[in-house]
């Protein structure tokens, strides 16, 4: 235990240092970083119209949709917290499966990418049941798993949907060794790479359920901050409490209540 903790702490301090540098770079030259340009040109472009995205509940990009408000609220709060603390990556998880983690991650990513100050990379880190591509309605040729297994180049994985400042790193296939892979040097390298290479970006990791698998616990030390998604009426108090305990040593930005009954205040 002690050893693990030391390793974790070491890792964290290191990532923090590098992130500080990244932000500085960010502030200097944001819009037309040559590296980013190259990225866009290299990444696969998919043209999925907003209407289909809306059908897939990705409404954050639709400015006229009052339901996007909540995601903008979320975006603003998360960005504020990240800026204050100089965090560059954020993981999204939840106590159990099927509670809308991926949907929240996608919508948040879209919402963030609409902010002209941000470019966003959304990584589908759920190696068991990758889901992000379903929302964006495309079939990935290669996914994170292929990369981790050494079957693909990182650069080939990126997908650029309709939104200009959004890049996706989708998942594909499934494995039973997800936690091992997530803690493998490959993954660590990838995280570092993403951090180093795409400094001006915010990286969002869509993670598997916190309580069902150890994947998330293994991976969490690699990210700067965490968002916890709770499904309204489905996750019990004890699940929430257990999740909170597991996330005690991380930088929890906050919780998100999904599928809430609360009325959306429509100002538009």
């Amino acid at each position: 235990m002690d050893r693990i903790k030391k390793a974790l702490d070491k890792n964290r301090s290191r990532t923090r240092k590098s992130r500080m540098q990244g932000i500085r770079v960010d502030n200097k030259a944001l819009a037309d970083h040559p590296f980013e340009q190259i990225d866009y040109t290299r990444s696969r472009k998919i043209e999925v119209p907003q209407s289909i995205l809306t059908e897939n509940r990705l409404i954050a990009g639709n400015r006229t949709d009052p339901r996007a408000t909540s995601f903008r609220m979320l975006r603003t709060q998360v960005l504020q917290a990240m800026r204050e603390n100089g965090w560059a990556s954020v993981a999204i998880t939840g106590p159990s499966a099927g509670i809308g983690k991926s949907l929240v991650a996608c919508n948040l990513a879209i919402s963030m990418s609409l902010d002209i100050n941000q470019t966003v990379l959304l990584v589908d880190a759920d190696l068991r049941r990758p889901n992000v591509h379903n929302y964006f309605d495309f079939e990935p040729e290669q996914g994170l798993l292929d990369y981790l297994q050494g079957n693909a180049n990182l650069a080939d994985l990126f997908v650029n949907p309709l939104f200009k400042r959004l890049v996706l790193l989708p998942g594909r296939g499934t494995t039973t060794e997800s936690s091992e892979l997530l803690s493998s040097p490959h993954m660590t390298n990838l995280v570092n790479d993403l951090k180093m290479k795409y400094r001006s970006r915010i990286v969002i990791y869509d993670l598997p359920p916190l309580l069902d698998l150890d994947d998330t616990i293994v991976f969490l030390p690699s990210v700067d901050a965490v968002l916890l998604v709770i499904e309204n009426g489905k996750n019990t108090e004890s699940e929430v409490k257990r999740s909170m305990r597991l996330l005690e040593s991380t930088n929890l930005i906050g919780t998100i209540l999904n599928k809430a009954d609360e009325e959306i205040r429509d100002y538009y």
Binding site: N107, L257, A260, E262
Partner: peptide, 13 residues
Amino acid sequence: ITKLTPLVAIPYI
């Protein structure tokens, strides 16, 4: 439960 106000409550879409 969390002693933490949720950032947002997202309605069912």
